[in-house]
Amino acid sequence: MSDIFQVPIFLFLLQGLRVTLTIAGAAILMSLVFGTILAVLRNHGGFWGHLAAVYIEAVRNAPLLLFILAFRFMTPLPPVYAGIVAMTVFETAALAEIVRGGLKSIHKGQWEAGATQGFNKIQVLRYIVLPQAIHNVIPPLVSQFTTIIKDTSYVWAVGIEDLTGKGMIIMGRYTTAAQVFTLFGLIAAIYFVINYSISCYARRRHQRMAKAIY
């Protein structure tokens, strides 16, 4: 036990955690933006809507690992960037579907009401429809965010040293059951604390907001 709980090991894991959070954070931000755009397009229909639909369906029905391998081995991007791009490409499709669910939940009357107030379509979307749509899907969005943090561990398949990677590197140096189990527990605990706090925080905020509205 005591040979695992050492400062250098924590620092080493912390470096990995930074990579995990960098990739996950960048992927979350970018895919939220792109996902929202795709959701709006698909909801709107027309040529661009169809294109968005094709992208979403093609990407979300293939595994994330495939995108990570492809971007790592077939593009000249540096490893961490390849990871970010691959995850963004993949998660954009997933977030687009969630946001679209929110858009569908907005009553058509809102569009008309906005229009009669002199808003143009973009303005209605920006100030009336999207805020409500996103608010309605905060729980599944946050749950997808935690999934993104977890799924970042797939980048270890191409040797990017995220938290999982650093953990496995250390694992290679320890060979007793107690050490290996402690390490697994420690790594799992780090992921757990992060994801659990995020979902708890989101849940509480959502409840408070829901109370404030109704």
Binding site: W156, A157, V158, G159, G165, M168, I169, M171, G172
Partner: peptide
């Protein structure tokens, strides 16, 4: 395997 440490493990 994808990486050396995994093979060692």
């Amino acid at each position: 395997f994808g990486t050396y440490p995994e093979i060692k493990t």
